[in-house]
Write a protein that binds this DNA or RNA. Structure first.
Length: 428
RNA sequence: GGAGGUGUCGCAUAGUGGCCUAGUGCGCCCGCCUGCUAAGCGGGUUGAGGGUAAUCCCCUCUCGCGGGUUCAAAUCCCGCUACCUCCGCCA
């Protein structure tokens, strides 16, 4: 949710932000007129209610005295007024609901620094690391699915048999690889001041809506209709809702959390895309970084999150690039987003491995996360970033570190988490 | 899943239809007094929304949440929710 005062005082700024995302600028004017209607309804209700309270006091006083006619008259007027108050209250509630409905449709105002346009209008900020020249090394690289089969790292066929398309089992060394990555990511996050968390992956509608996932992303979210629960697509959801309806002392900021959780995504609209292997799946595990801080501090924190993500990929010896995502490809909550994309040799492309977003006050306003300082009480900023999304990290590790004999080199930093193993060898 | 009990200001509690503009104690903040500290004295201390550009001021809402009864609800009725106790079930 956006600060209404920004919309009132500088509606053109908001319309411009909408245009940068490629979304309707008219929404701003709908919100402003709904707000007008809401405020006049509130004023009408409050005037009547104040009158009712005054009258009520007179009734109470009259009841002891012997001015019985006067009391009857007061009661008469009170009764009539009571009907009017009820009507005004209903009108006010309806106007409030209409206003909220339009307001909740508005995404966060895209940063002027975020490139305008859609998915393909990103700006590449830098390249890190060297991509390997397999031709020069004298062999044809295998893709992650083939490598995974030879290593016994995952089992797609049985995943599909049991759960359907886009499901898999991590097996043997694949399962151990997940635990190693999770353990390493958690330890590093903790060293950087993040509190380790294992949050619930099933949340109530309020948490889902508050994080902005029931807007443009709603079709990607699993919903348990019988119980009105949602399966989270990222632990950003339970982490953002963790401090909902709380007022935090700004002295205690930033509050940094690192959560390990499963993630569930319908991947609606991606039919036929990345159908091979475990690159795009309906369920995966992930370690996610999350920060609560002030809006003023959020921009620097966003850079720090990006730096942590880069350091992580560097330590895994993966070649990657960093992109500044275009406004149209931002989530509803974000003002700006940076993705780290690792090189996938057999695809000849850079693919998203991590992503970090600054949501400024957007989620905090919806979830009631506020900070208390000497200046008063204000919504905080929330930021999120990927520490490690397991399947995609496994894909990148297998493909980039494969050897001519079908084995895979383990990056040095990861070896202590894999019983010191230096290579993963084919099992058959 | 079943039965019973409890939810009032940061904490503890008072409040059984109008005198509640929710009292009191503790804690906290400001001031006075004071070699220092404590005590004592005085004042302040939920949050949201509206009038406003506004931290002054005025108004409305807020006693777990949502409805209802009533001229009038912290108070009466209904539903929900959280917690506590017991029973059942389960990893």
């Amino acid at each position: 949710m956006i600060d209404l005062r920004i919309l009132r005082h500088d509606p053109e700024k908001a319309r411009e932000a909408q245009r940068r995302r490629g979304t309707a600028p008219e929404l701003i004017d709908e919100i402003l007129s709904a707000d007008e209607a809401r405020r006049s309804a509130i004023a009408g209700y409050e005037r009547l209610r104040a009158e009712q309270k005054t009258l009520g006091k007179q009734v109470a006083q009259a009841s002891g005295a012997d001015q019985t006619d006067n009391k009857a008259e007061l009661l008469e007027r009170s009764k009539a007024l009571s009907v009017e108050v009820k009507r005004a209250d209903t009108a006010q509630a309806e106007a409030e609901t209409r206003f909220q409905d339009t307001m909740l449709q508005l995404p966060n105002l895209a940063s002027p620094e975020a490139p305008a346009g859609g998915e393909d209008d990103y700006v590449v900020l830098e390249h890190v690391g060297e991509t390997r020249d397999f031709a020069a090394e004298g062999f044809q690289p295998l893709d992650h699915l083939e490598l995974g089969k030879r290593l016994g790292a995952f089992d797609i066929e049985r995943g599909v048999k049991v759960s359907g398309a886009r499901f898999y089992y991590l097996t043997g060394v694949g399962a151990m690889l997940e635990l190693a990555l999770v353990q390493m990511a958690m330890e590093r996050a903790q060293e950087s001041g993040f509190t380790p968390m294992i949050p619930p992956a099933l949340v109530k509608p309020h948490a889902m809506a508050g994080t902005g996932f029931l807007g443009q992303a709603a079709s990607d979210v699993y919903h348990l209709r019988d119980d009105d629960f949602y399966l989270v697509g990222t632990s950003e959801v339970p982490l953002a809702a963790y401090h909902s309806d709380e007022i935090l002392d700004v002295q205690t900021l930033p509050r940094r959390y690192a959560a390990f959780s499963p993630c569930y995504r319908k991947e609606a609209g991606s039919y036929g895309k990345d159908t091979r292997g475990i690159f795009r799946v309906h369920w995966f595990d992930k370690v996610e970084l999350f920060t609560y801080t002030t809006v003023e501090e959020s921009y620097a924190e966003h850079q720090r999150l990006l730096l942590w993500e880069k350091d992580w990929l560097v330590s895994l010896e993966l070649p990657f690039r960093v992109i500044d995502t275009a406004a149209g490809d931002l989530g509803m909550s974000a003002v700006r987003k940076f993705d780290c994309e690792a090189w996938i040799p057999t695809q000849g492309k850079y693919r998203e491995l991590t992503s970090t977003s600054n949501c400024t006050e957007f989620q905090a306003r919806r979830l009631g996360v506020r900070g208390r300082s000497e200046d008063g009480i204000k919504p905080l900023a929330t930021l999120n970033g990927t520490a490690c999304a397991i399947p995609r990290t496994i894909v990148a590790l297998l493909e980039n570190h494969q050897q001519a004999d079908g084995s895979v080199q383990v990056p040095k930093v990861l070896r202590p988490y894999l019983q010191g193993r230096e290579t993963l060898a084919p099992i058959a």
